[in-house]
Computed example of a mutant assay.
Amino acid sequence: MRRLAWFTPARQGLAGLLLLALLAGLPLRHLLEASMWRHMLLQYPLWLLAGALMAGTLGPGAQRRLARWNAHGIAGLAGVGVVLSVLMVPRVLDLALNDVLVETLKCAALLLAGAALRLSWNAAGLVLQGFFLGNVLPMMVVVGQLYIDAPLRLCNAYLLDDQARLGHWLIALAAVLAMAWLAHVAWWLVRREGAGAKLTASDH
């Protein structure tokens, strides 16, 4: 934790703004959106990261006010799930490439989803985190398999092999995220049992 002490809320906000500026710039945007898998698996997470970094600038007072409508992170995680489900629709990818308004709404939604994810994740606890991932990760697998099995291009802007590549990456990413979260749960349980054992030993 001490190693990250220098990464203050102000610096997090600055990093988020710099990342936002890079993502909004035409060179990087065109590079990421030139490929279907980069569009969804690189651009989307980077916008989420920018939102999460900028959310770090919120003070305790603002976080308490937000918590009034985001008890246990439920509203925030639900919003993130809705945003991700909509933005995985092939038609949305096509529209984002051809309509400036849709592209702007897409980026704004991802930015807000990243902020909501940061503000909601710890508040949700393991049970609600598992419920959230239990909905989002299978959705990623289903969408990925659809991209692989579809005989025709689902997005007019991208080739069929790029579509299949995205499908394979979506399934792989879902598996990696699931294993990472399960490893975190296992670590938490071991840590809790270790703390309980120390407390019991101290009582004797």
Rank of each mutant, 00 (worst) to 15 (best):
A21H: 11
T104S: 12
N135F: 13
E103V: 00
Y158V: 00
G51A: 02
G25W: 07
M88A: 15
R118M: 03
A67Y: 02
V185F: 13
H30C: 11
A186S: 07
A108P: 14
W169C: 08
L152S: 07
G134C: 15
P60M: 00
V102L: 02
L137E: 11
V127D: 08
Q145T: 00
A109E: 05
A5C: 00
V89L: 15
A164K: 14
C107G: 11
L87C: 13
G125C: 11
H204V: 00
L111E: 03
L110F: 04
L182V: 14
V127E: 12
A109C: 11
L46K: 03
G73M: 01
W187M: 06
H30L: 15
L84A: 13
L41G: 08
A15E: 00
W187C: 04
A180E: 03
D94T: 02
L110T: 01
G125P: 14
A164C: 10
A55Q: 08
D203C: 07
H30E: 12
L152Y: 02
Q163V: 03
A34N: 15
A186P: 11
W169K: 02
Q129V: 12
L126T: 10
T200N: 04
D161S: 05
A157T: 04
H39G: 08
W187P: 02
G25H: 15
L31S: 07
Q129R: 14
V82M: 03
L97E: 00
A62C: 14
M179K: 06
L31G: 10
L199M: 13
G114P: 01
W121S: 06
G59E: 00
A178H: 12
L42I: 07
A15V: 03
P45Q: 03
Q12N: 03
V92T: 09
M139P: 13
G194M: 07
G130W: 09
D161M: 06
L4Y: 03
G134D: 11
G13L: 13
V92E: 01
L48C: 03
D99C: 11
L4D: 10
L101N: 04
G56T: 00
L87K: 06
F131K: 01
K198I: 01
H72K: 07
P151F: 08
A109N: 04
L14C: 14
G134H: 13
R192I: 01
A24D: 09
L46C: 03
V80E: 09
